[in-house]
Design a protein around this nucleic acid. Structure first.
Lengths: 190, 190
DNA sequence: GCCCACCGGTAGACACTGTCTACGCACCCT
DNA sequence: AGGGTGCGTAGACAGTGTCTACCGGTGGGC
């Protein structure tokens, strides 16, 4: 009735997205996904030759939503303000969807050829490069953007793991994000 | 004869360290470690009640060597230069020992209580805080050090995964590390 | 209109994993 | 000498991913 008519391929990914949000990345068993989709454990093989490819398809959903979230925010205004919004949106996504974010950056589990992150991840980075160049002209925007991206990723990972709270004693990650932005782009009101 | 007399507990960790360097983190099967140690698959249980605890013991070796490597470098000189050496040593460790580094930051696999990283990781961070305060007085050294650490970690991870090469087109990670250091600490010759 | 091929799901086997339990051997202590 | 305990063995169990044989329906070609 509702969406029973959707193909099994999409349904498996739906189930996976739901499952990783609900129980974490280690719950994404092939057989468990099949179980929750109401099919036998051999069925997914018709659509995803291997477990890794199913996980990659689930992760690609994550990259898509990350792109959508960061695109929705930081629409206009000066480049520096848009970068702040983008960075905060990135961090919030990572911490609202820890399981998915963890899955997205488990390169041992995502044969990077399968998930074509060039389609979703690279455009996002290009936007970062563009905004960086606008906010801080006169430097190698590509390198600075790379360092900034790495910084956001590191904060997301270490914060999610709890290390940064332990090491710095902070209770909120926004000061860290602002410190990173100030460092790479210069102080906000400059 | 050689070191046959070492206890099984240490031998298991030895085998694990060797195995993760040789074949990566996913090869650290409990049974495979036992096999290579020449004991039955049930033997490790006498020393490590669970697989996670054995992995944590192996990872702790990694934290120890990371601390040793970063301590060996950056011995003296101005704080800024020592920080550069420390950062490069950190990155080189991460990229020379990808399997180990990956293991060290797999929080799903390291019940963080077991590996007492307070003993090895926090002192390293404290040294980072101290040097940061010396290199860049007048700011919240703890926050800046946290952001810098996250930046190094992010570079290590994304570089090891290949994303930064793809996104920035760089072939060497030192420009990125220097960009991060310049960003958080100010330009070197200041 | 029939037959046949094929798409897609089922069911069972296989090797492998981590954990648990029963067993046994050797050693040490009194 | 005897009993207990530390430590490794061996087998069972549930669970995993992959592979293979099977098979029901559906659609196209003649």
């Amino acid at each position: 009735m509702t969406d029973v008519e959707t193909g099994l391929r999409d349904r498996l990914v739906d189930v996976g997205v739901d499952l990783v949000a609900r129980e974490g990345a280690q719950a994404l068993t092939l057989r468990e996904i099949a179980r929750r989709a109401g099919v036998s454990h051999g069925a997914p093989r018709r659509h995803f030759p291997t477990h890794l490819e199913l996980l990659s398809a689930i992760a690609r959903r994550g990259f898509g939503e990350l792109a959508a979230r960061t695109a929705a925010r930081g629409g206009q205004g000066p480049a520096r303000a848009r970068l702040t919004e983008l960075a905060l949106a990135y961090l919030e996504f990572a911490l609202d969807n820890r399981g998915m974010y963890e899955l997205m950056f488990r390169h041992d589990v995502l044969e990077s050829g399968h998930l074509r992150l060039r389609d979703t991840s690279l455009p996002l980075f290009e936007r970062l490069v563009e905004l960086t160049g606008a906010a801080r002209p006169g430097v190698d925007a590509r390198t600075v953007a790379g360092a900034l991206w790495a910084n956001l990723h590191g904060i997301a990972q270490l914060w999610s793991w709890g290390s940064l709270q332990l090491a710095t004693g902070a209770a909120d990650f926004t000061p860290l994000v602002r410190a990173a932005l100030d460092a790479h782009l210069g102080p906000e009101d400059a």
